[in-house]
Structures are given as C-alpha cells and as structure tokens.
Design a protein around this nucleic acid. Sequence first.
DNA 1: CCATTATACTGGTATGACAAGTCTCAAACC
DNA 2: GGTTTGAGACTTGTCATACCAGTATAATGG
Lengths: 242, 242
Amino acid sequence: MTSLKPKATKQNIAHGVRKRLLAMLESETFGPGDPLPSERELMEMFNVGRPAVREAMQSLQVMGLVEIRHGGRAKVAEPSLGRMVEQIGETMRHLLATSSADLEHLKDARFAFEKASAERAARRRTESDLQRLRNILKLQDEARDNMSQFLIHDREFHRSIAAISGNPIYTALSEAMFSWLADFHIDVVLLPGREQLTLDEHNEILNAIEARDPGRAAKAMHDHLTRANVLYHRTHLSSPDQ
Amino acid sequence: MTSLKPKATKQNIAHGVRKRLLAMLESETFGPGDPLPSERELMEMFNVGRPAVREAMQSLQVMGLVEIRHGGRAKVAEPSLGRMVEQIGETMRHLLATSSADLEHLKDARFAFEKASAERAARRRTESDLQRLRNILKLQDEARDNMSQFLIHDREFHRSIAAISGNPIYTALSEAMFSWLADFHIDVVLLPGREQLTLDEHNEILNAIEARDPGRAAKAMHDHLTRANVLYHRTHLSSPDQ
DNA sequence: CCATTATACTGGTATGACAAGTCTCAAACC
DNA sequence: GGTTTGAGACTTGTCATACCAGTATAATGG
C-alpha cells in the first residue's frame, strides 16, 4: 500500500461532512429557501454520528449559508455579502477591542474607501441618485436635534454614495465599516454642536457629485472625514494627528 | 396581548457561553498563547453540558480567537487580520461559486483597491521599499518559464505594494482578493505567452512609484489590470470550457 | 543522565434519552 | 363552509455517558 495519500483524513469528521454539504449546496439540487434533510437523515446519509452533523451544520450557519431554527428543518439561505459582514462583525469587534492600533488602521482604510466611493459616485451618479441624496440630507437637516436619528441619516448618506457605484461590495463595506467603528463610540463624523458643519460638508460632497467632478468629490470627502477625525482626537485624546 | 420584549432571551445556551468566553478573552486575565480551561472544567464553571461548551469553543475557533488541538488544551490565539480573511475565505469561495455577478463585482472592487494602493505607495515609498520591489521584479523575470513560480512573484509584487501603505489591512485585503480570484482560475494578470507584457507593466508601475507620481501609478495599475481582464474575457469567450 | 514507556490527562465521536419548539392536519366550533 | 384550536408527530436543543484517539507527563529502565 502506497503511503501517498493526498487527502487522508483532513481534520475531523465534521469537516468532511461540511465539505459534502457544501457540495450539495453548490449543486443544482438545492436552491435558496429549500429545506435541508433532517439531522437524523443526514447522519444516516453520511454514516456519522449526530454531533458530527450538528457541528457541520453549525459551521454552515456561521458561514451564513443555512438558517437553523429550533424545531424546524434548516433552510438554505441566500448567500449575501451582508451575511458575510455579519459573520466577521463580532470577530472584528473583538479585534478592535484588543488592538487599538488596528482601530486606527481601520479608520484609515475607511478614509481611502470613502474617497474612492465618492470619486466613483461623481462619475456614475444619475438624476435619481441625486434625488435620493438630497432627500437624505433634508431628513438629516430636520433631525439635527435628535442625535441618534441624525446619525442614522448620516450612515444612510454614506451608504447611498457607496450604492451609486452599482457594486454591492461597496455598499456592504460602507455599511460594515460604519457599524464597526460606531461600536466603539467613534461616530466618525458627529460631535455635539457640530451638526451644521457636518451638514455643510455633506452638501459640498453632494454638490461635487452633482457636478460630476470626481477630484472635488474625493477632496470633499477627505476634508469631511479628516475634520471629524481631528476633532475626535482633540476632544477625546488631546493628542496631535499624524 | 402586547408582546414587547427587548430580546432578552438568548438564542441558545452555547451563545451565552460564547459571550462569557469572549468576555474572558477580552479581560486581562488571558493573553495570547495562554491555555484555556478544559471542556470539563468549563462545563462545571458554567453549569452547562459538554455540547454547549464544545459548540461555543468551535465557534471561537472559527472566529480565529482560539486554537484547538486534539489531545491538548485550547490556546488563546493572537487576533490577526490574516485569520479573519481565512475565516471568510471559504464563504467567499461559495459565494463566488454560486453567483457569477459577484465575481465581476469582486474583480471591480479589486481594481479600485489596487489603484488606491498604488497611489498611496507612490506617496509613501522609501528606498528600501523600492529595493524590495525591484528584487521581486528581478525574481519574476528569471522565473518567466515557470508559470507557478511566476505567479507567486506576481502575487508578492502586488502584496508588497499594498504593504508600503503601512496599513496591515491593505496587505491582508490584497492577499485575500488575489487568492479568492485565483481559486477561480482567474489569474487576473497572467496568460501564457504574455509574461513579457506583464513584466513591462509591472515595471511601469514601479517607475511611477519611484517617481512619487500617484496619478501615474494609479493609471499604470489601472491599465495593467484592465489589459489583463480584457485578455481574459477574449480568451475565454473564444475557447470552450476548460 | 537520557531515552523509553506507561498512564493520566485532553479533545473527538457515538449513542440514547429527554426537553422544547414547530409543523400538520383533523376535529370542533362559529 | 370557513375558521380556530389542539393533539400528535415531527424537528432541533441539551444533557449524560461511554468510549476512541491523540497528547503530555511522570515513572521506569538503560
């Protein structure tokens, strides 16, 4: 018997079961919403114990590929970027909680991303896009006395700019970065008493996008985020910015 | 009957256990490398059964926060971006396998990311950075007859450009996007017989970075990726499935 | 002293039992 | 007839137990 085994026993049984289940999900036999076989059926199907099946299913749930409900059969979930973001959200929260350096890196990455997003929006925006942005800004203006509501519209403004790209990855990333940073009370853009400044900057971004001027849009976004970040540091840390 | 519940009930016991374990990991009592209590100890500690403990630990392993070895105690892992990428790698693979549209979106996002990366590299590059890039290009040139080796150096070239940013998020994302796309035989940049073209384009990117010309670097990167993508489409359109 | 082995750990898996939630469908009610 | 309700048969959730399979460590023999 040759000792050349390219596969051997990968890690554990559950891992093998997950692979087979993944193959099933990628085949044509299962589509989003379809119910999966019960755990008992699967353990007979794969000749493994229930723990192995449960572990594999649990793993698939964490991956966002199936939806498990107590008492009912698991259903095939529709793969979505939003679910993936949810998947790594808690991990990211833990990472940021234990490493303040990574928090700065994430803020920096968001800068670059939002700038690219604004540039792209300035190139691709349609009339309806502008209409939506204007509406959001109007709602945000009306909510300037309601901090939490004001923040919701702020988030929506950035999200919509990302959405104009037409690439759902942009939207998901915008949404994700915002919520990750918000978890750490870094509202990125907002400070009490500065609502008017935020609104003015948003307006400048909107004008640049309306004018189809990518460079101006990028600069407006950059100034917007930089100003907020500097203010944040001065207020919370009193430490100079790079 | 008014049913106003602030979602106090946990999903399941394992979820609660995971939360308590997470709190332990974020406290000062545990640092990277420290061994965790055994499953038996944890089930006594939390007054739950072993499945609940196992499920929670499994979840933490998927999140990349602990390392579980058969026969030994679990250890606290050092949180890292690389591990997070690994975490969502398989999910991403599945997502791309079931949605060809998202594949295009990912390629598009990579374009924008690599452009921003090149811009930033042109602004921040040091002499040692240039030295490293030149060395990689030299190795890639020498490996032009070895396709797999050629590709490794290609990957390293892009990774190094991202690394110049000084932000590990850039590096991790560059690595991740490259490997995700590579899984689908989209080598993004490489086609047999076009090695010299790839080398020339890499050289132009390097020159732009050396000249500290962000715009030129971005354009060079854009042309590089666009050319590769167009070639890819043309090749696969005219040839049957492979 | 070092290498080897025996043993007491650890996690991995299987099984059975029961609790708790969900679904189905037929009986009961209006 | 149409709607509600509730019993029963599913399902997953959890636990307890036992045993298998690796690992680490102490005891043992050179």
